[in-house]
Computed example of a mutant assay.
Amino acid sequence: MAQTTKRALADSMKKLLAKSPLDKITVKDLVEDCGVNRQTFYYHFHDVYDLVEWIFREELAEIAREEINYSSWSEVLYRLADHLTQNRALILNVYNSVSHGEVTRYVNKAMRPYVAAVVEEQAEGVKVSLENREFVTDLCTRGAAGLMCNWIETGMRRSQLLRLEKFERAVDGSLRLMLKNFEEK
């Protein structure tokens, strides 16, 4: 039941975001649209920003539902870009309503576990400390998330999305090399 209520609130938020910026949407607007009371909303979420973060996490998890590995990580980035494009009005209303640093934090936080899984896969057989694996994870997460945020910032223009292809080329084969550069002898 809790997941059903959360999804209903998420659907209402997405519906409202298609028309209004996030900073203009209130809990009152959400509960009226969804047909639940304020107490129910606050049982599940602290505020509207918490709901938006939950939506991002859930949707990214759905996009990356299959196990991610080195050969498929870029496909997940493209699926994410397609999903964001399909929800362009919603994404731009969120992006233009909150601090851009907050959006960057959402994207980094959501993408990091998937990048970490790929880094761990590439670290197999390489004697590299956890600290250095986390450094490589942070570097790659921030690169991919930065490109995604830059794409959103430019109004999600198709030409900017081509930068993902360049990122894919730049990273191809280099994760293992980065890890080997930190290998303990």
Rank of each mutant, 00 (worst) to 15 (best):
Q3T: 14
K15D: 08
T141D: 01
V103N: 03
S71F: 14
R65I: 11
I68C: 03
N108E: 13
R112L: 06
C34E: 06
Y49P: 02
L139Q: 07
E124C: 09
F167D: 02
H44Y: 15
E102I: 06
A123N: 02
S159V: 03
L77Q: 03
Q122A: 13
D47T: 03
V52Y: 02
A18I: 09
I25G: 01
I152H: 00
V31S: 05
L177T: 14
A116H: 09
M111P: 05
K185Q: 12
D82M: 00
K127W: 14
G155K: 00
E58Q: 12
V94G: 04
V31M: 09
N181H: 14
E134S: 08
N96G: 04
M156C: 03
D11W: 15
V103I: 13
L139D: 02
L30W: 06
I68N: 02
S72R: 15
M13N: 02
D33R: 11
L177P: 04
K14C: 12
A2Y: 15
K14D: 11
C140I: 11
Q160N: 11
N69Q: 13
V126G: 02
S129A: 11
F167T: 04
A123L: 03
S72F: 10
L177Q: 12
K185M: 08
L164A: 04
P113Y: 12
R38P: 06
F135L: 11
T40N: 13
E59W: 05
D50G: 08
A123V: 01
A110S: 14
G35H: 09
A145E: 04
A116I: 05
F45D: 00
F45R: 00
D33P: 04
Y42D: 01
D11L: 15
V107D: 02
K24T: 11
V119I: 12
V27Y: 13
K14I: 13
D33S: 11
E131W: 08
T137F: 01
G143F: 03
A144S: 11
A2P: 14
A81V: 00
P113V: 08
V76T: 14
F182H: 05
E124W: 15
A116F: 09
T104C: 08
E75D: 15
L179N: 02
I68K: 03
N93R: 04
D82A: 00
R38D: 10
N69M: 10
E131N: 07
I25H: 05
M148Y: 07
I68P: 01
K6E: 09
I55C: 07
L16K: 13
N87A: 12
M13A: 09
L130W: 11
N37A: 14
R65E: 14
R158P: 00
E121K: 08
K185I: 08
S174I: 14
E168R: 02
E124T: 10
K166C: 01
P113C: 10
L162P: 00
Q160K: 07
E59R: 10
I25T: 05
A89G: 05
R163C: 07
T40G: 11
N150K: 09
Y106K: 04
I91P: 10
T141L: 03
L22H: 15
D47S: 03
A123P: 01
Y95F: 15
G125Q: 07
L175I: 15
